[in-house]
């Protein structure tokens, strides 16, 4: 069951085509990575999902039905460029933003206080936003994004501005949200977090989809059939380490077993980072 479906969406600004016939399917309770270089059209696509802009053609289906204004309450969006009112108190502001997502004041207050305790920031409730560091503000923004328990979460570069400890905290939160039933669309340039978190990805460049699939499948598709081999020769010399290309790993292992004792045998899979760079630069040519 696909929770989110984007069918043949195109969008132009003037004569510039920002999105060209983009289609994706995001299964329920999965994390979907939206990848692409700057200016690829990711933000436009996300804005279409948030109904900030309308597509010229194409359709977005949420849970099987076309997007309606009421779906705003079902979507949580953490934009890449994000901010808060500097002069407003943290708690007041969080309640305000939760109310705009359709929550009652009382319910928002109750749930927000629980989240503030969970993130260890309960003491900031009455502080003004301008007194907080950037990383602290990001925590508040994350809470505000998820507070109304949306079924679709859209995170645009959620880890920017966080230290490694908080990145970890956030990753665990994101995984927990998925396990509780949320479907997550995740846009980032941080490829290691893509490998860690995403079930499926799409790569777009200049408004065109150039790659789509599960992280596992994609890695398999782009692998170079190379293996890292470590073995201990029978003649008693030192452990030998080599990288071999082969289309037949069984044959390769057999050859090694004749020469010595096999210590380790690993297939070299390309990192998402490599795949990203190769595909984008070749599609730019």
């Amino acid at each position: 069951m696909n929770f989110l479906e984007i069918n043949n969406v195109s969008k132009s600004y003037g004569s510039k085509k920002v999105l060209n016939d983009i289609s994706i399917k995001v299964p329920q309770q999965s994390i979907y990575g939206l990848l692409g270089p700057n200016g690829a059209g990711k933000t436009t696509l996300i804005r279409i999902l948030n109904q900030i802009t309308m597509p010229d053609t194409g359709q977005v289906l949420l849970n099987g039905h076309p997007l309606t204004p009421n779906d705003i309450a079902n979507i949580g969006y953490l934009p890449e460029e994000r901010g808060l009112y500097k002069k407003m108190k943290v708690g007041e502001q969080a309640i305000y933003l939760a109310q705009l997502k359709g929550m009652s004041k009382k319910e928002a207050d109750k749930r927000l206080r629980q989240w503030f305790v969970k993130f260890g920031i309960a003491s900031w409730w009455d502080k003004k936003v301008e007194e907080l560091s950037k990383g602290m503000q990001q925590k508040v923004q994350f809470i505000v994004t998820v507070i109304h328990e949306p079924k679709l979460l859209i995170f645009d570069e959620p880890f920017s501005g966080f230290d490694p400890i908080n990145v970890n905290l956030l990753k665990n939160e994101i995984l927990e949200l998925r396990d509780k039933g949320a479907t997550i669309l995740f846009s980032t340039h941080n490829m290691s977090s893509v490998e860690e978190l995403c079930d499926n990805i799409m790569l777009i460049n200049k408004g065109e989809k150039i790659l789509e699939g599960s992280v596992y499948d994609i890695k398999q598709r782009f692998k170079s059939h190379s293996y890292d081999v470590v073995y201990k020769p029978f003649d008693g010399s030192e452990e030998t380490k080599l990288t071999v290309s082969s289309t037949n790993p069984n044959e390769l292992i057999r050859e090694i077993l004749e020469k010595g004792e096999l210590v380790s045998f690993n297939e070299i899979l390309p990192s998402m980072n490599e795949i990203f760079i190769n595909l984008v630069s070749s599609s730019n040519q």
Binding site: N50, Q51, I52, P69, I72, I75, Y77, P79, E81, R82, G83, L84, Y85, K86, L97, L100, K101, Q141, V144
Partner: peptide
């Protein structure tokens, strides 16, 4: 201008028109 330079605008317009 405050909302725009603060970048809170994108959060808000994802909630209201």
């Amino acid at each position: 201008i405050e909302e725009k330079t603060n970048r809170i605008i994108e959060v808000i317009v994802s909630s209201v028109k």
